[in-house]
């Protein structure tokens, strides 16, 4: 652990900061600056070092490496923007970008209404709904690998539980090669991702609904507002904050989705389920084209940032105080 005396480099910005910082702040401080500075070093430095070395530095490396060719062992070779121009004419990568957006879009359309309905349902007062709420959370305990392996067994076209139901209940459409058919694979993945993540978003909506002051509903009921209209004019506007948070996590999450697809389809059949994160993984660790993989990584990162910031901006989120509007 470094102490004050042996890290002169860090005192530079510190001193500059002290000069510029407003007086009142310092007046509040009964302890001398030395104690502060050593506490800052011990308290902040390990966090910043770990975070800097393993999050910020990798971001820089990804950007820089996208301008080089590297196979993982040999020398780096500067290639200018050629990896980037390759990306824009790489039909596989562009297709995977399409699949990525399709997956995220469909996932949002499927999961948001479902999670909201279930969240409002379990937020109800009835006691059985509390039991349901507890059971709804069970998928969250399973790892993605566990979920993937479980569904792989269930969806097996010859011995799986779903095919068995199809055969014995004469529902022949259930007997399919769900993950192996090019027309069903992507939709099956969408369904599995929903199974995995709807419980989490249900929880968010449940808590969001619980935070809406009951007086608003009482007032609306007194005015003879029907439950359906209460939903549109009380619940929905009051859930705005929850909708933004849930949608952001949902969309960014599905844009970067990797695990289930890697385990169950590995992008196939053909490249119907090949998403960008999988394409990047294969470019790096199967084809050992780390430079090109970095291009895909940067694209993935930029999409994540743009979508997260865009959603926050678009929805006028940022004034957190408005979340509590209507409460005295």
């Amino acid at each position: 652990m470094p102490t004050v005396t042996d890290t002169p480099t860090l005192s530079g910005p510190d001193v500059a900061l002290a000069k510029r910082s407003p007086r009142p702040h310092q007046a509040n401080r009964p302890v001398g600056r030395g104690a502060y500075r050593s506490a800052d070093l011990v308290g902040l430095l390990p966090t910043l070092v770990l975070y800097g070395a393993l999050i910020l530095v990798p971001i820089v490396i990804a950007v820089v490496l996208s301008f080089y060719n590297w196979n993982g062992v040999g020398a780096l070779k500067f290639v200018g923007a050629s990896n980037w121009s390759r990306f824009f004419s790489d039909s596989i990568a562009l297709h995977s970008l399409e699949v990525t957006f399709l997956l995220a879009g469909v996932s949002w359309v499927v999961q948001t209404p479902l999670s909201m309905a279930l969240g409002l349902f379990v937020a109800g007062r009835q006691r059985y709904r509390a039991v349901y709420a507890a059971l709804y959370l069970l998928p969250l305990l399973l790892s993605t690998t566990g979920i993937a392996l479980m569904w792989q067994a269930l969806l097996d076209p010859s011995f799986g539980g779903i095919a068995w139901l199809g055969t014995h209940l004469h529902l022949s459409f259930l007997v399919q090669n769900w993950l192996g058919g090019s027309s069903t694979a992507l939709w099956t993945i969408v369904a599995l991702i929903a199974w995995q993540f709807v419980p989490f978003h249900t929880l968010l909506y449940q808590m969001g609904r619980r935070q809406i002051p009951q007086v608003l509903y009482e007032a609306a009921a007194l005015d003879g507002v029907t439950p359906l209209k209460q939903f549109f004019y009380v619940t929905l506007p009051q859930l705005r904050y929850t909708i933004v948070v849930s949608s952001t996590l949902m969309i960014v999450g599905s844009l970067t989705y990797f695990d289930i697809i890697y385990i169950l389809t590995n992008g196939g059949p053909g490249d119907t389920t090949r998403v960008l994160s999988l394409d990047m993984y294969q470019a790096a660790f199967q084809n050992t084209t780390f430079g090109y993989a970095s291009v895909l990584a940067v694209v993935l990162g930029v999409i994540g940032i743009v979508v997260a910031l865009g959603l926050v901006r678009l929805t006028g989120f940022g004034s957190m105080s408005s979340q509590r509007e209507g409460v005295a």
Partner: peptide
């Protein structure tokens, strides 16, 4: 750092 998905960093992390 929160906005950058960890998936985008696996190549540099592997290298480091």
């Amino acid at each position: 750092g929160l906005a950058v998905p960890i998936q985008a960093l696996i190549v540099p992390l592997y290298i480091i």
